[in-house]
Design a protein around this nucleic acid. Structure first.
Length: 833
DNA sequence: TACCAGAGGAG
DNA sequence: AAATCCTCTGGTA
């Protein structure tokens, strides 16, 4: 159960039992869950700090002073590694490159064993300098593992499982940190895969409210409330008023101090916010400093620190875990908008208390107790929503942390490719593999240009169809990687020519298991095991939900490997591997299509890993035939590649590739790719198309569907729609200056920007098209600048409602004129109006 | 009319 | 800071 880091002794674990006495020094030992790891520099030397909580609930920090950074040097081919190692420890080199020792070690590299020089360095701050020096040494071909953060290096090398148990030994010491126990000169004695129970973590959600007339500015606008929510309830810190759950802290300074003492006294393990990395925490810190107090949230008494990033920065709370749910939610669910209230509504189907930004300012300005209580209820609802969202995602995040063996605080801020990569780095260390370098910018751009062919998409049989069975391959790409052993270390091996050949012509070793396939296999196995456990459980029970969160994490990870292989910034990048996976994918789906045809099925659509089939017969006979087909196909499929029954649809409507809608027997409509599911169409256009589809699929009544469209057109023409229904929302995917073409949303953004309103990359621009001549872009206006008589009814009819509706209705013989007999009347209205 | 840039979706 | 495939719009020549 335990990875014994240092010696294979068997330990009996007791909290802080004096374990050994050596030269008069009493060493204590503790067993606890590791929550956070970081390091500080003391007298020029790095000191690793391990923060966590023991099984019986007391907090600890363990300081470790021995660990030092190192990097690897690969000698040029004509250079003897031992010779290089000797030269690298010479006085001159150790002076210039801070090398403390160098020795030859064996590592494996793409399936072969090579000898490299491990160069130990004195301090993390000198790694960069040492690296450039070493790379300038002619005998050195390249350096490796130079960009692994020091704390990650420690976690990896000491086999620490974040959130898992570790046994630590050290000297009990005095400490001014907010912990029950401090160990100095500690060592990691053993680590285990026994994990903390996420429900036992002490979680605090927080949210601030700022009173401002315009965009919040920390130098000017005060924080007026801080909402806090934990398992015991909600409290709102504020000043100048109390009552309900409001707590009067005197002034802003007192409120911030109370927040700090609440965090420290509450002994929280995990601090959760929404947009807290880039908004709440930096804002609070600025306000704290203007008020002459420190935002001292760390267990080590440090202030929150902002760490700028290439896209999103990050706020650091030392010694505690922290999650900003915003990037988490963005990664986990696809939503049109990621405001807290939209996310809350999408996840839980409930509205929370809403206020517009200026209303916060207005309510606060009144100083009226009832207004302030209303503001308090808004603040409470924000922070409670934050806590609830954290409960929703924490189990999945914990599983991702377990699987990648990275700190929870880091995992929540990682993209999928980073999670895969750190999992691979960790596994590489365990197996003695040298970690490949990240590509240079130049290499990255070269890789970017090197494209390959992806999935197969069959042109659908268009129009309304009946009785369709959908079949899909279970996790096709992961299954291919595992079954065909697709990996950098197995591609085109010498030993297996002509065997296991992909349609790209590359073959993959069948004798030696590949690096990525073996790791992926473990993830898939664990997921199957969890799903098997879930099978007999009640889906509404807690154990089921926990496992569901875990299997979701495993699915996310497994599905990311293929994308990772083809990702130009990946360390283990291989276009050939990604290409081979996709090629095998096309091969298997096309074979499934062929076999379906052999059985007399008509294949009406197929995309990458799914096939939609039908046959002129009763639904029962069709389903029966589909099951037989499945059996026949699966008998022919190798390894873990498996085709599954997905669903049966009495009706379906196919518009084009990737655009269709289906209804299953329980009446659930699935819509793919059509305007109804796109963010960048107006609600009136989407809603009308949705109703048309529903009327066709559920009722099978095209005439009534046409009437739906006529009604919508009429409402627009007669100006009986609310402006909300006309808002078109498009995201700025680039910075405002880098656009070549001036699409409507870009035109709106440019006008906003010239009016002094900052428009950032990733922001959605909401606009309504006004009446008048010229380009749509010239007439597109921000929502506030349009009144009901201003909108361009003709644009909304012709360009928003009709195209999506006609895509469906044209196949039933309807013409535009059949749907918009208002056209002529409307024109007259315009002429005389 | 033909083409391109850009957006957002599917799997 | 995961891949490719695909449709559609508005702007421009």
């Amino acid at each position: 159960m335990f990875d014994l880091v240092h010696s294979p002794a068997v330990y009996q674990f007791h909290l802080l039992t004096p374990a050994t006495e050596l030269f008069g020094v009493v060493r204590s030992r503790l067993e606890g869950f590791v929550y956070e790891v970081d390091y500080v520099t003391q007298e020029g030397s790095p000191v690793i700090r391990i923060f966590g909580r023991t099984r019986d609930g007391s907090t600890f920090v363990a300081l470790h002073r021995k660990f030092r950074p190192y990097i690897y040097c690969k000698p040029r081919e004509d250079v003897d590694p031992d010779d290089l190692a000797r030269r690298l420890v010479s006085a001159e080199v150790s002076e210039r490159a801070h090398v403390t020792s160098a020795s030859t070690v064996e590592r494996s590299w793409l399936g072969k064993t090579i000898r490299v020089v491990r160069v130990d360095l004195d301090s993390p701050r000198n790694v960069r300098r040492a690296r450039s020096f070493l790379e300038s040494v002619p005998a050195v071909e390249d350096t490796y593992e130079k960009d692994i953060l020091f704390k990650r290096r420690f976690i990896i090398d000491r086999c620490i499982h974040p959130l898992g148990l570790a046994v630590l030994e050290g000297q009990e010491a005095e400490s001014d940190m907010h912990v029950d126990t401090a160990l100095d000169d500690s060592d990691v004695v053993a680590t285990s895969e026994v994990y903390t129970n996420p429900s036992e973590l002490r979680v605090l959600a927080f949210d601030i409210e700022v009173a401002s007339r315009a965009a919040p500015d920390a130098t000017r606008d005060p924080v007026v409330m801080i909402g806090l929510a934990d398992s015991s309830g909600t409290r709102i810190l504020t000043y100048g008023t109390d009552g309900e759950n409001l707590m009067d802290c005197g002034d802003e300074r007192g409120m911030i101090s109370t927040f700090v003492s609440t965090v420290q006294d509450g002994d929280y393990d995990l601090i959760v916010g929404y947009n807290s990395d880039s908004f709440d925490l930096p804002f609070l810190k600025k306000r704290a400093s203007l008020n002459g107090v420190r935002l001292e949230l760390g267990r080590d008494t440090s202030e929150v620190a902002y760490q700028p990033g290439s896209i999103l920065g990050r706020s650091i709370i030392r010694g505690r875990m922290s999650i900003d749910l915003y990037p988490v939610v963005r990664r986990m669910v696809n939503l049109p908008s990621y405001t807290l209230s939209e996310v809350y509504k999408a996840l839980f189907g409930e509205e929370k208390v809403e206020l517009l930004p200026h209303e916060i300012h207005d309510l606060w300005s009144t100083k009226n107790p009832e207004a302030l209580r209303r503001l308090g209820r808004y603040c409470a609802s924000d922070v409670e929503a934050t806590l609830r969202i954290s409960r929703e995602y924490l189990p999945t995040l914990v599983e991702l942390s377990r699987q990648t063996k990275q700190l929870l605080s880091d995992v929540c801020r990682m993209g999928n490719s980073q999670m895969v990569e750190w999992l691979l780095v960790r596994e590489a260390y365990r197996r003695g593999e040298l970690v490949p370098n990240r590509p240079s910018e130049q290499e990255f751009h070269r890789r970017e240009r090197e494209t390959y062919v992806g999935g197969f998409v069959l042109e659908p049989k268009k129009g309304l169809l009946q009785d369709i069975v959908s079949l899909d391959f279970r996790s096709l790409y992961p299954a291919i990687i595992v079954t065909h052993n697709v990996d950098l270390s197995t591609i085109d091996c010498e030993c297996c020519r002509g065997e296991n050949v992909s349609p790209t012509g590359h073959h993959f070793c069948i004798k030696k298991r590949g690096f990525i396939p073996s790791i992926l296999q473990a993830l898939i196995d664990r997921r199957s095991q969890i799903k098997a456990e879930m099978a007999p459980m009640d889906p509404s029970s807690e154990p089921y939900k926990e496992r569901d969160a875990m299997q979701r994490a495993l699915k996310v990870l497994s599905n990311s490997f293929y994308g990772y292989m083809g990702y130009p910034r990946a360390r283990w990048y291989s276009k050939e591997c990604a290409e081979s996976v996709a090629a095998w994918g096309r091969y298997y789906i096309q074979r499934a299509i062929e076999m379906a045809k052999q059985d007399g099925f008509e294949v009406v659509y197929s995309d990458t890993d799914s096939v939609f089939i039908t046959r002129e017969q009763s639904a029962d006979a069709l389903l029966d035939g589909a099951k037989q087909l499945l059996r026949r196909i699966n008998e022919a499929l190798p390894g873990v590649i498996e085709l599954e029954f997905e669903d049966f649809y009495p009706r379906g409507f196919f518009v084009s590739k990737k655009r269709y809608a289906l209804i299953n027997r329980s009446g659930r409509i699935v819509t793919r790719g059509l305007e109804a599911v796109r963010r960048d169409w107006s609600p009136i256009a989407k809603e009308t198309q949705r109703k048309v589809l529903e009327t066709i699929l559920r009722d099978g009544d095209p005439e009534r569907a046409a009437q739906v469209v006529r009604d919508a057109i009429r409402r627009v023409a007669e100006r009986r729609v609310s402006l909300d229904e006309l808002v078109i929302s498009t995201r700025m995917t680039k910075s405002i200056h880098s656009y070549e073409a001036e699409a409507p949303h870009v035109a709106v953004a440019r006008r906003l920007a010239s009016g002094g309103r900052e428009v950032s990359r990733g922001e959605a621009i909401d606009y309504i098209v006004k009446r008048g001549g010229g380009k749509v872009g010239d007439r597109a206006k921000p929502v506030g600048q349009v009144s009901p008589e201003d909108y361009d009814a003709e644009y909304y009819i012709k360009s928003q409602i009709l195209p999506p509706s006609m895509r469906i209705l044209s196949s039933f013989g309807f013409k535009e004129e059949d749907l918009r007999y208002y056209k002529s009347r409307q024109r007259t209205l315009f002429e005389f109006g």
